[in-house]
Nucleic acid binder design. Sequence first.
DNA 1: CAGATTACATACTTATCGGTATAGAACGTT
DNA 2: AACGTTCTATACCGATAAGTATGTAATCTG
Lengths: 199, 199
Amino acid sequence: METAAATRGRPREFDVEEALAAALRVFWEKGYDGASLTDLTEAMGITRPSLYAAFGNKEELFKRALDLYETEKLAYVGAALAAPTARGVAQRMLEGTIANITSECRGCLGVIASVGCSNADSPIRADVRGRAQSSRAAMIERMERAIEDGDFTLPVTAEAMTQYLTAVMQGIAVQSGAGASRAELEQVAEATLAIWPGR
Amino acid sequence: METAAATRGRPREFDVEEALAAALRVFWEKGYDGASLTDLTEAMGITRPSLYAAFGNKEELFKRALDLYETEKLAYVGAALAAPTARGVAQRMLEGTIANITSECRGCLGVIASVGCSNADSPIRADVRGRAQSSRAAMIERMERAIEDGDFTLPVTAEAMTQYLTAVMQGIAVQSGAGASRAELEQVAEATLAIWPGR
DNA sequence: CAGATTACATACTTATCGGTATAGAACGTT
DNA sequence: AACGTTCTATACCGATAAGTATGTAATCTG
């Protein structure tokens, strides 16, 4: 249905992926509510009507930016879950988190969008939550296998260890957004691993 | 200087502390940027000029609300630091955090204001950060004493354990804001205590 | 080259933002 | 009762929010 179009009419003068990457940085810095269309269009180097023609509206642009964020910035999650032991998973997750939130922009876009959205029943929050749910499920599965493998020296549940590790990562993201140095964040990761109960 | 005034002129028709408590709830729910003056005045039951006469402006109102938050909602911090062991401190801190963020409103006002403020160099962020710094210092001191007391079964630093425990609490607050159930939050606290290295 | 089609650029819409000017209402003092 | 003082109520301010109408420029099809 939508495969037609071809190349009729005036060609677009900007690169959609580049513009999207610029939008992602703005959302990352300012959050969904905080990012105005003026901020976005300036960073993307396009005009308002071009943005609406290419992406629909602000909300859809944000979702597209989240897609990009997931594929580019959250790639470490998959690699982390492939670690041979639960400790390895935790280590790679923490390292990935710190690398991610101290790179281009501070903090975690998921946390920023979820916490920073003014009204609790916003479609933005629901979207972010839905995305988080799938990686949570993957983490729980991985932790279940770790329990079967005897990775833990304590009787823990997969859900609890997932929620716990997620909390530490989110806390690191909060501290990063609040201005903590990379060394301080690494302290948290090191402490978590030093405490980690098992291999 | 300001002790004069007495009771000359028309008396105020609303209770300042009550209005402040209402403002706190609004800021807590929507964050600083997200709370509009319309939201605030409606919840406080007063008009705009009354708000400005009594509190100065939005920023000062927020700081007053933060004062109230600290004295009423963060009282558990002092009690937690008085626990006999580091584990006791952690337990009371985690319990206090969960009780706080699942009571009136979800999440932690400090996290919400810090993460949810659209621009990074806002006076709001600076204020929140300054307040957090003092409790951080108190926590570090307490952890130093715990190390001297031999509370820990691992070679840890007071700074690292403080940052770590703070991260877990912030993570719990994030999850609460994202809609996690109380049971899920308690899972995190229980896991943290189960893992806690020492008494 | 004519026409359809698509994108860009300027300027606009309505709504809401934080903050305030102004007028009237309620009090203590004289 | 008249006055100064302080609060409340309404209506307003300029700035900015998200989103769009309109005209023009650039491409493909015929």
